[in-house]
């Protein structure tokens, strides 16, 4: 399955989850940022181009779903996606602590950009007090998400290797 298709499917799933959270648990929906989590996880596994495009796409979808100015989350997610992808090319991200730190820092940067832009443009009501909570909550969700993501990737690799082995045996 190509990266674009996988990312598109994940994006659709995240959008659905966000909509569900907003309906069922509005407080959790406001606190946990699943889009930025998707961008960070995708960028950790992919290259810089995937980081930029993934961040842009996820941000635009988030902008469409939220009432914020169009392009606000797209800009933040694009920066985070590109930054995380570039960083993951330079440091070893297989360690859980490093990956967790990247998730936390990525979320923090995303929130800082969104908050800064809201303050500069004077649109909406930026709430700086919610930023630490959002960072902690998103990171708390992101770490097991990262573990699941890695497990899924390992499982997919295993299956692919198995399939290739069987094909050779035939």
């Amino acid at each position: 399955m190509p990266w674009a298709a996988r990312f598109g499917a994940s994006l659709a799933l995240v959008s659905l989850l966000e909509l569900l959270l907003a309906e069922v648990l509005p407080a959790a929906g406001r606190t946990i940022d699943l889009f930025v989590l998707l961008v960070i996880l995708s960028s950790l596994a992919g290259n810089s181009l995937q980081g930029v495009i993934g961040g842009l796409a996820a941000g635009l979808v988030q902008d469409t779903l939220s009432a914020s100015p169009f392009g606000l989350h797209a800009l933040a997610c694009c920066v985070v996606g590109y930054g995380v992808a570039r960083l993951s090319q330079r440091i070893v991200t297989s360690q859980r602590l490093v990956a967790s730190l990247l998730v936390a820092v990525g979320t923090l940067v995303h929130q800082a950009i969104v908050l800064g832009l809201l303050m500069v443009l004077e649109v909406g009501e930026p709430s700086g007090g919610a930023v630490p909570l959002r960072v902690v909550a998103t990171t708390a969700i992101g770490v097991p998400g990262l573990w699941l993501f890695n497990r899924a990737q390992a499982w997919a690799d295993e299956r692919r290797t198995l399939k290739e082995g069987r094909a050779r045996l035939r």
């Binding site: 930029v52 100015p69 392009g71 800009l75 590109y82 832009l117 443009l121 004077e122 649109v123």
Partner: peptide
């Protein structure tokens, strides 16, 4: 990719400022 990133960011900033011209 870096050029593409800069272009994307610039376009997004332009889009955001267009939504709030006075500010």
């Amino acid at each position: 990719i870096a050029i593409l990133f800069v272009v994307a960011v610039t376009l997004l900033v332009a889009s955001l400022t267009a939504q709030s011209p006075e500010r």
